[in-house]
Write a protein that binds this DNA or RNA. Sequence first.
DNA 1: ATGAAAAGGCAACATAGTTGCAAAATCTTA
DNA 2: TAAGATTTTGCAACTATGTTGCCTTTTCAT
Lengths: 147, 147
Amino acid sequence: MPKQATQDIETRIAALLKRCDLSVTESRRKILHLFLEQPGALAHGDIERKAGEKFDRVTVYRTLQAFVEKGIIHTIPTADNSIRYALCKDECSGGHHHDHHVHFVCSQCDNTYCLDDVVTPDIKLPKGYQAEHVEVVVEGVCKNCKG
Amino acid sequence: MPKQATQDIETRIAALLKRCDLSVTESRRKILHLFLEQPGALAHGDIERKAGEKFDRVTVYRTLQAFVEKGIIHTIPTADNSIRYALCKDECSGGHHHDHHVHFVCSQCDNTYCLDDVVTPDIKLPKGYQAEHVEVVVEGVCKNCKG
DNA sequence: ATGAAAAGGCAACATAGTTGCAAAATCTTA
DNA sequence: TAAGATTTTGCAACTATGTTGCCTTTTCAT
């Protein structure tokens, strides 16, 4: 990879952090890198394994928490009780989330993807219930695993 | 409450357990009772708190696990990483689940409800993705909290 | 009533997540 | 760019959550 490109990524990461009022530290850059390198979502465990040799567990927790608060990443609910995080699209970073897309979990490779172009449907609820937010997680076979 | 009714519930609980090839024990009866007494879903923590004085933590885990395997209860994914369980409708107990309904989490009272009559919508996925199961969780204000 | 089989309790362990505090890194501004 | 204020980190200790093996108790079938 050309040095130019790497430089660009570092610059973009730093800019993103500053825009979010977060100081630019090694752990934050490293963890953001993990997300950028990877198309799917990351479980906390993944991140800890990949960044954990260099950083303390507590730092990983606090970093992810800060990223969620600032709208850099969002959480994806799963049935197996393992929180997964994925990068928000740029519009989120402003402050409030626009997290209206569908998530997809592959039952074969276990990767989780944000289907940014698939918006969550309106759900018709029984009388008396008032919807504020709809979460949709589809389980199935992803593009790569479908032979 | 008349003795008759209580007797009936106990009988139904015992019958359900037997139908599922589970021996009728005190902890299983107690935990099933908790679900029947309550309209919404129960988090593991709730159950442990309510049944935990009488039963060991491990027993609660194993009981819930057995119930899920037999299709007596099902799990509901949540964003806050706390597994919630709810009774399946009778048809589930046969063996395979018919868990195609929408779940509702109240942001005020934090109760979780199965909206048994609201079926999960079809989601149109990008080319290459193949859906097997769709999970929908709606967050909002429930019937009781909506003033 | 009795013995086989299943379930429960206990202990010990593994993993996940939190908190307070002192040390280190980052940022500000002069 | 050096110095001080501020933020972040690492460490230690702790709570909570979940798992496993083994022995005792309960349940069930006869």
